[in-house]
């Protein structure tokens, strides 16, 4: 697959948020406003790209029996680096979303891409895939953040946790409907990859 193809498929067809429904905890919790959503998207991007490229570069030396602990160790290292960097350079934002930056380490979106892609591909491809996944996650976070930010000003429910579930459900539904329409319009389109769609 071409670089652009890898990127697009990671960002849209296998979007972590609205196709695979991964990383929903930060998606729901941090999307109360655009600024926080943006900060978490940047931190996740840093960890995703850092961990994917590192693991892809050293994939030959990772013992297959102990690969998951290695993956988690490397993700945790990048997450802690992100925490330290945010504390140093974006302290005010960090105070708001501290816990959600720390739990990036348990985000299955990252471990999933490493296990399924980065641990078997070259660093270049792993980078493109990570960038696509991160872009997809960032789009989902920013759309949620913007929607809740705007609606929350008039309707308090939108800024509260139940509102997050309702809005996330509506957005995920509209995204799926939108893609169905696009797929039907595209002549000779590939059948949807049923394995990654749940």
């Amino acid at each position: 697959m071409s670089q652009a193809g890898t990127f697009n498929s990671a960002m849209i067809e296998r979007n972590p948020a609205w196709v695979q429904l991964l990383g929903l905890c930060p998606l729901l919790a941090v999307s109360t406003n655009v600024a926080n959503a943006m900060a978490l998207a940047l931190a996740s991007t840093f960890v995703l790209i850092g961990a994917n490229v590192t693991i892809s570069s050293i994939r030959r030396w990772i013992p297959s029996h102990a690969r998951l602990p290695c993956f988690v160790l490397i993700i945790a290292t990048f997450t802690t680096c992100a925490v330290l960097l945010m504390q140093a350079y974006a302290f005010e934002v960090y105070l708001q979303i501290a816990l959600f930056v720390q739990i990036i380490v348990t985000n299955c979106m990252i471990l999933g891409r490493i296990e399924a892609f980065a641990s078997k591909q070259t660093p270049g491809k792993a980078f493109v895939d990570a960038a696509g996944t991160a872009a997809g996650f960032a789009i989902a976070l920013l759309v949620m953040g913007a929607t809740r930010d705007v609606i929350g000003r008039g309707l308090l429910l939108a800024s509260l946790p139940p509102g997050a579930f309702i809005i996330a459900g509506l957005l995920l539904g509209s995204a799926t409907a939108l893609f169905r329409v696009f797929e039907r319009k595209r002549p000779g389109a590939d059948p949807p990859d049923t394995e990654t769609r749940r």
Binding site: I58, W61, I62, P63, H65, A66, P69, C70, L73, I74, A76, T77, T80, C81, L84, L85, Q87, A88, Y89, F91
Partner: peptide, 27 residues
């Protein structure tokens, strides 16, 4: 296997120590 794991862990520790050292004064 033990050597691989040790090297990976040491690399992670080194990266963390470096970041911590660089960001400490600012934090």
């Amino acid at each position: 296997r033990a050597l691989s794991l040790t090297v990976i862990a040491a690399g992670c520790a080194g990266l963390l120590a470096l970041t911590q050292h660089l960001t400490k004064p600012r934090i």
